[in-house]
Design a protein around this nucleic acid. Structure first.
Lengths: 227, 227, 227, 227
DNA sequence: GATGAATGAGCGTTCATTCAT
DNA sequence: GATGAATGAACGCTCATTCAT
């Protein structure tokens, strides 16, 4: 498999006004198929069948199977980022933004588990070759966290002793793994914890840590009653 | 394979005393190759060449390419778990154990980055089919965290408001992602943070959270000066 | 094949009106190749080259190499059985039918020696696994003989002291071996007997036996002058 | 696979006085294994395991897997031919000899079904490459029949209108196929006819044919009461 | 002589991609 | 643009054969 797209590729991505609906159909089908079988075990013809198009049609909209995964990632991440941006704008403080981010992130997993599965599990799967492509949108996503941390530190809400670049990674990893476990438990008939409750717990740990100490409340109040 | 092959044909794993060195050679080679190319993009003959054996020799020790990955995981995880257990036994408190766990975990990444790469990145890659096999050793690994949390809650060191099953996942995910980013940055010429320093920051967040509040020190002292 | 493949993945046989010509091309090629090299020594790519298609194309029409052999057998035997049925319908008596069967059978070997070679030699070759598949069409073929014997016994033309199930086997075996020898002699530059003449002799032995006895003509007259 | 033995082959067949017992053990094992799985589906290591020797030991006694089959054939056929010769010498007439041949042949199948299976089924299987090797011993075997026929014709016992070269083939084929069916039925839980009774019927057909005619007994008396 | 671990050529099968219709 | 039959490179795995011990 060619990992890197050739510069001389003949088939440029198409963006006809109405026929992009078909491109979207293919992307939706890819989400389903990749979530079910994994990227490497999914065949292009599986995606085609799921999308109700011919195998060759895939190649009118995507350069390759790899490109399908990349565009899937770009497309879905853009929507998620946009949505998060809008929602986060309303939160009055960095703490509230961060808490909301956690809640929204896990809510997304509940609302669109199939998409979440592909984004969390299968995107890692593509290993080496995805890393270059992933960077753009994935970095933008992570920057949402970083911006919150930086703002919180600047405004004195957050301690300054932590590197925002580290925290964004750690928080993303925590949410990702918690989501993954929930998704897999969902498929395997296991139900370890409710994701909304998990969001609250994760926030609490982020906010106050797990050490029991005098003079500091162990848990923050729920978001609705926040002053 | 043709219609005629009996299911019982499978070559059982060998465990000759001295020749198991060859099995180990193959596993080491697999770590290198899978880390470099990813499981799905690695060919069995790549592993054979790296191990300095013929292709067919692989199949004297492993049932299939999949089995090679599974045994790799089992073998390496067992060693890591054992090592962690021994080191953690010395720590005097749950807090110290947890801090040590984080440090040791990230130290492992620095010491054996190739192994870490396979364990964090490529094992997720095998997607659906690895999940069953992964369970055993991976669960054992996660239980190391869970046990620390439970003990800490029982002894009053940790707050009781968090589900240990959730925390173990979240912490693992955080460490995993932080490791992954460090590993990838290493390959890509990027150097975002030193892993030992990252361990300290992660511990601080786990311990005290990121909220700046009066009456509680924002950062815990480094481990050497810990009472 | 890897662990992940669903059992239902199998490509079903296609039966597009015009493209079935390609299936026929492949079967013809398989007859040639199997006759020349034998089933086990023939490679799928040999058949593909002979048919003028790519290797993968074989698998658009046949599930496996084994399936190719099975379908070859079914297809060619069906045609032969049909042809025999039509020709045998005209024969006025059981004796004439049996004689005609022998003649037609050996004539087929002369007309289509390559096909005959595969049918007599190579089909036996697939050993254990063909036995189940062979049963259907092969049994139907043998029943042509059995029906003639039974009718002849019922009508008093044939002696009743022989088991039709035995005779059909014995006659088939005799014809098969005689054909095989002729086919091999053909390839090896030997010419032991003309097959049409052999048909007459076999019929004579079947009809009257080889014992010379008074009161019964040792040989029956040729079929054209039969009253 | 190399079909033809190279003239430069290094390993000449061995015939140490006592250790030939091991060669015999291997041949016996080969009979069992080839009968069970077929020549092409049997592995050399299967034969080695059955014989209780190491894989490599096979190659101390046989040049190749093919050679093992050839020597198996030569060895077993020699024994059978010798045995038949001795028994046939006692028969007083050509007719009695032929009848005895049929009886002995089918008796052998009952006595040593495994050997019979290999000889009738699996030897055909080796297709092209066996043909050259087969000739010698197989021809000698067939000549037993031919000699009987020729003698019978010369002495006026048998009609002269049939080619002995043809009859030997036809009779062999009939016996072979009848044996094969019996052997397969034996494995498949079917029991179509007893082989001793089949011998009598086949002899009757050979002797007198199946046509019912006045002035000639339809069935010959059993062998004990033969004048 | 006997062993059996090691070899590596060989092959059946898959599937991303193309292109004639 | 859409199709899907055709392509053929690629790869996992097998097993006859060898050879160091």
């Amino acid at each position: 498999m060619s990992v890197h797209s050739e510069p001389g590729d003949r088939r440029p991505p198409i963006s006809t006004p109405a026929q992009t609906a078909k491109q979207e159909r293919i992307l939706d089908a890819a989400v389903q198929v990749f979530a079910e079988k994994g990227f490497y075990n999914a065949r292009v013809s599986d995606v085609a069948r799921e999308a109700g198009v011919a195998d060759g049609t895939i190649y009118l909209y995507f350069r390759s199977k790899d490109d399908l995964l990349i565009q899937l990632f770009e497309s879905r991440m853009s929507a998620i980022i946009e949505r998060l941006r809008v929602r986060l704008a309303d939160a009055p403080s960095a703490a509230m933004k961060l808490r909301l981010f956690i809640e929204l992130q896990l809510a997304l997993v509940v609302e669109e588990p199939t998409l979440a599965e592909v984004l969390t599990v299968e995107l890692r799967q593509s290993g080496k070759f995805m890393r270059e492509y992933k960077a753009a949108k994935f970095g933008e996503y992570l920057d949402l966290i970083e911006e919150i941390i930086i703002a919180g530190q600047r405004d004195g809400e957050f301690v300054s002793g932590v590197d925002p670049r580290l925290v964004k990674r750690a928080l993303f990893g925590a949410l990702d793994e918690v989501s993954l476990y929930w998704l897999q438990g969902r498929a395997g008939g296991r139900e370890p914890y409710a994701l909304p409750a998990a969001a609250e717990q994760i926030w609490n740990v982020c906010a106050r840590g797990i050490l029991r100490t005098a003079g500091a409340p162990a848990v923050l109040e729920p978001s609705k009653e926040e002053p």
